[in-house]
Design a protein around this nucleic acid. Structure first.
Lengths: 329, 329
DNA sequence: CTCATTTCTGCAAACGTTCCCAAGGAGTGC
DNA sequence: GCACTCCTTGGGAACGTTTGCAGAAATGAG
């Protein structure tokens, strides 16, 4: 591929001059500018950004690590963050960790090698090795969805405890007293632990509550279905169900219907995430809206700030949520 | 950040030797290797991939341009393509064109500057300027979702005509004779034109058909709702509806219900895409499954081949589909 | 101990830019 | 005609690597 050198030769000027017209700096005569421009068009010159990046010590690259691409949360987050990153004239270097902790670590390292300017990490769980990798990163890392502020890692999180608390209140209000929670795995602090914690907090002082169950599965509709089926068998009194995600909740409602009970009447159901799925299913799902696109944007903004100022003025940012109460509770 | 140079100084060897240790080439004494390794750990050296890329004239970067992040098709496609790209040891450089033709062109240029090895383009419509930009790209571009084979651009497409044809057959079979089609905009060849074309082909020879309507909107549930509301007003005889996407179909069913007709009974409804939404809504939506993850994978493979072999052995690849017939038709 | 052979290491060029510095040339005022 | 300034241009170092080549050190054979 043609380089600066060839353009220079072709137009009979020096590399310096060519460079100047490319970056259209002032101080180059109109006639030479024209001459050079012609040569550029002629040999189809395309600036080599790699060489530039090396010289300028700046890549304009932001690394983004997600656990999976095709989930409501990730997709919307990606949409949000990409818009602010691209507005800032930077590019998104994307990696799919497939929820694998080691891959997350691997990508943090590789991104450092690639000299990204910062990293946005949608982590599923924060273990020692990951924290260490983040600490070792030469460029700032901001965490999305999990709270790393304990380790002094800037984090954008959703108010999972608050959601759990509100879910409890709503369930009580709706008259439920045998309440189940379907979470994911215990390593996922935000989705599993915090939401459950909020739930228990709100139920704690109520004398209406006779029992509380905690069951665990995966992030899918199918898993929600299976978990609930089992739960109904083990515990027929169940009359309120808080699911850690909307997909789980939708699976749950299916299981409930199949057990000849009416979701939203016999058993109140609540999800989290405001997935569009909850809007179209029957009965429509009561849930909590997390502004994933906004948290994506926010996290990108925090990261860009961090890159600019070299120090965080925010170590933890808790995004609020919105109650979306429909038919299921 | 510490460079090769500092490690060399610290360990008392030359840059060459350090480089050799890092790339663990044979022919370096165990004792020096150890010495160097210690120095590396000590000063926290991280290889500069930018410099490497420049020297080796190879970035291991694949540019991916999508019209939006948060759609079923894109998300699944991204999941598929990222898995094969990452398996090949390469990285995904992601750009969101926001369905803007000019941005697509802009990104093709920028990616060329970044010296990506190839580009995967989810295009919404293929106009002259875009074709020109693709032709001018120094690295191979493969198109996903739109047919560019006419312009000799390797393309991975879904069998949109086939889907339209099958939709028509199904609608006839179900006894519909006043059939509507809700598409998007006419510039979207694949989603609007091809699907409609297939539909008309299958209906052409039928004497049962009394009329066929073509209406246009956007990719959303809301748009499907509005379009259908209008359609029902204009044309009350409507008894079969083929929607270019599942989201549109779901909006359509809502409008139908509101008009006191029963979707799947009074008016047969068909969508495209096998969005999970269609599974949970009532009545469940009959649709066609496009293996978006597979087309993502395939396109990445074709691109990698193209990069490797410098010439295409496939110029067009039509992915098949699967009939998913549920309650709505 | 010497010479040949093998193993190891360092020098320096190259990748394609940017940008500092200096120098050439053209005006300008006296 | 001279000194001065301003505008335009070119030379070359630098960014951090890799790698061919040659030389140094180590090893082995006689």
């Amino acid at each position: 591929m043609a380089g600066l050198h060839e353009v220079a030769k072709l137009s009979g000027v020096s590399k310096s001059t060519v460079s100047r017209v490319i970056n259209n700096e002032y101080g180059v005569k109109a006639s030479t500018k024209e001459k050079v421009q012609k040569a550029i068009d002629e040999c189809g010159y395309v600036a080599n950004q790699v060489a530039r990046d090396l010289k300028l010590q700046k890549t304009n690259l932001i690394g983004v690590i997600v656990p999976r691409m095709s989930s409501n949360a990730t997709a919307k987050g990606l949409d949000g963050l990409s818009s602010v990153i691209e507005l800032a004239g930077k590019h998104v270097l994307l990696a799919n960790s497939q929820q694998d902790n080691e891959k997350e670590i691997e990508y943090i390292k590789r991104f450092n090698q690639k000299r990204v300017e910062g990293i946005l990490l949608y982590a599923t769980h924060l273990d020692e090795a990951l924290v260490k990798a983040i600490k070792q990163s030469a460029v700032p890392v901001v965490l999305i969805g999990q709270d790393g502020s304990l380790f002094n890692i800037p984090s954008i999180i959703h108010d999972d405890v608050g959601v759990g608390f509100n879910a409890g209140l709503r369930l009580l209000e709706a008259g439920a007293s045998n309440i189940g929670f379907i979470g994911v795995n215990s390593q996922d602090i935000a989705v599993d632990q915090c939401r459950f914690q909020g739930l228990t907090q709100s139920l704690q002082h109520s004398r209406q509550i006779s029992a509380l169950f905690h069951s665990r599965g995966e992030f899918t509709i199918e898993s929600g279905y299976q978990q609930t089926k089992q739960l109904l068998l083990d515990w027929p009194q169940l009359d309120g169900l808080f699911c850690a995600t909307d997909r789980i909740a939708i699976g749950a409602m299916k299981a409930i219907s199949e057990a000849n009970k009416i979701p939203g009447k016999d058993i109140k159901v609540l999800g989290v995430g405001n997935d569009e799925l909850g809007l179209v299913c029957t009965p429509s799902l009561s849930t909590f809206n997390y502004a994933f696109d906004l948290s994506g944007k926010k996290s990108a903004q925090v990261l860009l700030d961090l890159i600019e100022n070299k120090q965080a003025d925010v170590s933890k940012l808790v995004m609020s949520f919105e109650n979306i109460f429909r038919q299921s509770c």
